[in-house]
């Protein structure tokens, strides 16, 4: 073999098949992917019952601490619920539809989930569909004020053009 190769460097040596690929490091690469995704993503908290298309804005701030954010979703019920609840926008808190009057209780429950120090630092993220009218949003805001939940975030998407 050796001798032959030296002689005809560019000659094909015949029955040499494709060597087996070493797949050992493949799993390492995939694991790296896995950890990458685990770090940059978060678990989906609850499935949405309402359709929400968040409006665009340019002056956006990111919310730093994910654990200190509680969401209030407002939008039209989606296909599965529109028959039961009608096309009017509704509020979704955690895993159920709610009325504005339920907000105070929701705030209490969410506050109890955190420890004493963090309670005043909770940001209430209002995820509202862009087509929703202000009436229901105002009701929610008034309830939040009543429940002394003052730190509010109007969820929006980054608008690239200025």
């Amino acid at each position: 073999m050796e001798g032959k190769n030296k002689m005809g460097r560019f000659k094909k040596t015949g029955e040499k098949g494709v060597p087996d690929l070493n797949m050992g490091s493949m799993s390492d690469i995939i694991f790296m992917f896995l950890f990458f995704f685990m770090v940059i993503t978060t678990m989906r908290e609850s499935s949405l019952f309402v359709v929400i298309q968040i409006p665009k804005a340019t002056e956006i701030q990111k919310l730093e601490k994910k654990a200190l954010v509680s969401s209030i979703n407002i939008g039209k019920p989606n296909q599965n619920y529109i028959k039961k609840y009608g096309p009017e926008p509704r509020i979704q808190l955690n895993d159920q539809f709610a009325e504005p009057k339920d907000i105070v209780e929701f705030v209490e429950v969410e506050k109890r989930r955190r420890n004493e120090v963090e309670r005043t630092m909770i940001t209430w993220s209002l995820k509202v569909d862009e087509k929703v009218k202000m009436g229901i949003v105002t009701d929610v805001k008034q309830e939040l004020r009543k429940a002394s939940a003052f730190k509010v975030n109007y969820a929006s998407r980054k608008d690239i053009k200025r």
């Binding site: 701030q61 919310l63 994910k66 939040l144 975030n153 109007y154 969820a155 929006s156």
Partner: peptide, 24 residues
């Protein structure tokens, strides 16, 4: 495992315009 995590997680970070509501 990778596909499982891809399906069950979401990348969207919460962002938006922040405001302080006045006390009632």
């Amino acid at each position: 495992l990778l596909t499982f995590f891809l399906l069950t997680s979401s990348i969207n970070t919460d962002q938006g315009i922040q405001r302080r509501l006045p006390p009632p």
